[in-house]
Amino acid sequence: MERRRFMAASLGTMLGAPAAGASHAPLHHGAALAFGTTVGVSVRHADAGLARLAIRDALASVQSVDRLMSIYDPASEVARLNRDGVLARPDPHLLAVLRHARALSQLTAGAFDITVQPLWQAGAHAASAGRLASSRERAQARALVGWNLVDASPERVVLRKPGMRITLNGLAQGYAADLALRAVRAHGVVHALLDTGEFAATGDAGARPWQLGVPDPRVPGRLAAAVRLDGRCIATSGDYEAVFSPDRLHHHIVDPATGDSPLELASVTVVAPSGIEADGLSTAFMVLGSHSAHALAARLPGVDLLTIDKPGRVRRSPGFPELA
């Protein structure tokens, strides 16, 4: 599973690290490999032993999601589903993510669609050969796309058209952040920041709230915004990570309706009550475009966003928790 790290600040370089001499419990950090890279957990607690247990369980939760939902590990349930077109007795966590995916597809009229994997593969294959996917290649891949052709029940998951494949890269990391947050809270930890590529936080960093930077999608090393984490989760999607063309008009985010990348936005940052919501909505909003994304966010409880279009224009929803 390819990591989508768009937040500029990591656990080791938080904008909101505690001030020196602050009379707060110390920070404890842990990291592990998942989603093809390093994921991290930071907790603030007076009991170092309990902090280590909380970090251990949080990281184990993240790795369990990766093992279930990786499209690259042939032993994962998603890889087996893609290979066989059917999966018996799916894990409850996989079922939960598939149900969320279906609800998000319905909410966004198909702008979010986990069955776009053939379109992504067509674009990536063409890019590796130094070209763009042809209209014929996109048409062939689009014929395999359809979120409503995925049937999921506790007994089995079925892809109803031969050759269909799914990707949960737009949900799995957010879901992993939710499970990691649940794991640290089970140990009584009140203050934690979870980094799975998407971020979840609870409590504070000591002297101030947890804070993260949103990178400028066009200027490496520059921040477009600094965000105060307010108990919600945060995710960013952009056109600048896995690119299929130097002009960034073709990249890893695909509009299921056209078979190609959406043209308006360079990045979308979403804060939402859960990691899986923030993760999925950031992808969906890239496809929907600024006007429709902001209109939909205004109807969703606890959801705010910041959009940056390709010319660099920034738009924030009224409740977006940007630092002054």
Rank of each mutant, 00 (worst) to 15 (best):
A192Y: 09
N169T: 12
A205T: 03
W210Q: 01
G197W: 14
R185T: 11
R208I: 09
T167G: 11
F199R: 02
P209I: 00
R208L: 14
G174T: 14
R208M: 15
R160L: 13
I166R: 04
G174L: 15
A177N: 09
L159F: 08
L179D: 05
P217H: 09
D216I: 02
L179M: 10
P215H: 14
L223D: 05
N169K: 04
L159G: 02
M164Y: 12
A225D: 15
E155K: 02
V214M: 10
W210F: 06
H191T: 09
V190W: 05
W210T: 00
R208T: 15
L212R: 00
I166T: 09
T196S: 13
A207D: 13
A200S: 15
R222W: 10
L194R: 03
H187C: 04
P215F: 11
T202A: 13
L171V: 08
R165M: 10
R208H: 14
A177S: 12
D178E: 07
A180R: 06
Y175M: 01
R208G: 15
A176I: 08
A180P: 05
T196L: 10
A224K: 03
A224V: 04
A180Q: 05
R182V: 14
R185P: 03
T202P: 05
H191Y: 08
R208C: 14
A201V: 07
G221E: 05
P215E: 14
H191N: 15
R208F: 10
Y175P: 01
L168R: 02
L181V: 08
H191K: 02
A200H: 11
N169R: 07
Q173G: 14
E155H: 01
V158Y: 04
N169M: 10
D216Q: 05
L212P: 01
L193N: 02
A177L: 11
A205W: 12
E155D: 01
R156N: 01
P217C: 08
V184W: 13
R156H: 05
I166M: 10
F199C: 01
T196R: 11
L193Q: 07
A200C: 15
D204H: 15
P162I: 04
A183Q: 12
R160V: 11
L212V: 05
H191W: 06
V184M: 06
D216W: 04
N169P: 03
V158T: 15
Q211H: 04
N169Y: 03
D216C: 07
G203L: 09
A176K: 07
G213V: 03
H191F: 09
Y175K: 00
P209K: 02
A205D: 05
V158S: 09
G170C: 07
I166L: 12
V158Q: 12
P162S: 00
G170K: 06
V214Y: 12
Q211K: 08
L223P: 02
A201L: 08
G203T: 10
H191L: 09
M164D: 07
V189S: 01
A225F: 08
R222C: 09
K161Q: 15
K161P: 00
T167M: 11
P217I: 12
G206F: 13
G197V: 14
G188I: 07
A180K: 01
A207L: 06
A176E: 02
D178A: 03
G213D: 01
